[in-house]
Amino acid sequence: MNIFRLVGDLSHLLAIIILLLKIWKTRSCAGISGKSQILFAVVYTTRYLDLLTTYVSAYNTVMKFVFIVASYATVYLMYVKFRATYDHNHDTFRIEFLLVPCFILSLLINHEFTVLEVMWTFSIYLESVAILPQLFLVSKTGEAESITSHYLFALGSYRALYLLNWVYRYMAEDHYELIAIVSGVVQTVLYCDFFYLYITKVLKGKKLQLPA
């Protein structure tokens, strides 16, 4: 464990908590893409299949449980409890266009052709594009509540910090994992224009408005 990965995990946890609190407190999931939340639930499910078979550390096991439970709780809140506030008119990204290519790619490019390894690789590829429906929704509505932009900033920062973690691990352990690194770069690049808007607008107290 290193500081980059620890802060990255905490940023990831913060993002998930911000989102759950926003939906629970405002009793509304306006401005949030349910499709992205479904993709995140798929990402954690396919990545943490080894949760019950491989013990890494208490921290690792607890965090995996928290991520899985929180992602399903968010999907439940959006599609069941507060479904009347779900913005299905704008949340129209075709996630099958993300699921199928990622699955095919995980069959073609992986470290080992086993179920666990292909599922892990699929979750890595899927996570890199899972935020697209959310960014698509923000671009369609042209704005985002400040709490939603804080959520996106924390979520985007987590994988950016993981990139630093992988640089550190390369220097400290002299090995690297290209599938995770390339996917992590793609994932972080997708947030770049949002990061720019967040830093230039939201941090100055303005609302996140996308140029129409």
Binding site: R5, D9, V56, S57, K64, F67, W120, E173, A180
Partner: peptide
């Protein structure tokens, strides 16, 4: 082993 492919990560 776990560290090989970052399997010790979340």
């Amino acid at each position: 082993d776990l560290e090989k492919y970052y399997k010790d990560e979340l």
